[in-house]
């Protein structure tokens, strides 16, 4: 067992799940800073994302927070991006990948710190029987405390373009791209942040799967290392999702954001 990778994956997946940024954006820079090449770290990042996404999935489905229609429609563009990025990353030098990673970490830090709270408000005429997603539309309703909040996705084209960008980042750097997807859904498409976060958790799993298939076919997966990261990420994400409800996510996100900016600076200096 590679205990270092196992521990890194467990801690970053837990912290990432609590902060809502995804753990890979922390894991990959940490692996690179401790000696793993950016080329080798990228697939491990996607393994961490896929494992964390699966671990959180069942709970979020039970909570009725995931909107599959919004997720799968936007994921089309993210998957096209991740395939492009994963193929391009095989052609790029380690220095370029390290700089991309630094840019990703910095952007994640800034975007995470800027994320807003609740935009959509409960509708008193709706009951818990109205919770769910609507057939044939990018809309639905979700339970927020004692109320039910209706929502409808807006500005789909802009959101889709941003999802394509998030996929490209995932393929190039091995980060989940969740730090782009969740703000794109909530701030651009006006999907409530809890629905956006849960739907993103589902879609980053699909993005990672698409990227991992490419990496596997390129012979870039070390199965033993992947297994250690997978085991650590399942534990970390399970703990993180359970703890998330008890902590104040904005405080954790601010801490994560500061850490990511520091990591970005160190990566640029080392590149």
């Amino acid at each position: 067992m590679n205990w270092t990778e196992f521990a890194f994956a467990a801690v970053t997946s837990a912290v990432g799940a609590i902060g809502g940024l995804g753990g890979a954006v922390l894991l990959v820079p940490m692996l690179v800073l401790t000696g793993t090449t950016a080329r080798a770290a990228a697939p491990l990042g996607l393994v961490s994302v896929a494992a964390g996404s699966s671990a959180a999935g069942a709970r979020q489905l039970n909570d009725g927070l995931v909107n599959h229609r919004i997720g799968i429609s936007t994921e089309l563009f993210a998957s096209a991006g991740v395939v492009t990025g994963a193929i391009a990353s095989g052609l790029a030098s380690d220095r370029v990948l390290k700089l991309v990673l630094a840019g990703v970490a910095f952007a994640a830090g800034v975007l995470g710190a800027r994320r807003k709270g609740i935009r959509n408000l409960p509708d008193p005429s709706l009951t818990s029987a109205d919770v769910g997603e609507h057939i044939g539309a990018l809309s639905g309703a979700y339970q927020l405390d004692d109320g039910v909040v209706p929502y409808s996705a807006k500005r789909f084209r802009v959101g889709a373009a941003l999802f394509g960008l998030s996929g490209l980042i995932a393929g190039l750097a091995g980060a989940s791209g969740g730090f782009v997807k969740t703000p794109a859904s909530s701030e651009v498409m006006h999907v409530p942040v809890r629905v956006a976060a849960a739907t993103t958790t589902f879609t980053i799993g699909v993005t990672s799967a698409a990227g991992l298939i490419v990496f596997a076919l390129q012979g870039r997966l070390d199965l033993r290392e992947c297994a250690a990261v997978c085991a650590g990420s399942v534990i970390g994400a399970t703990v993180g999702v359970a703890v998330q409800a008890r902590l104040a996510p904005p405080q954790v996100r601010r801490f994560l954001s500061a850490a990511l900016v520091v990591i970005a600076i160190v990566l640029v200096v080392r590149a």
Binding site: A50, S53, F202, G205, S208, A209, L212, C226
Partner: peptide, 9 residues
């Protein structure tokens, strides 16, 4: 393990 986490989503 890798096949399973790729297959799940």
């Amino acid at each position: 393990a890798v096949s399973t986490i790729v297959a799940i989503p």
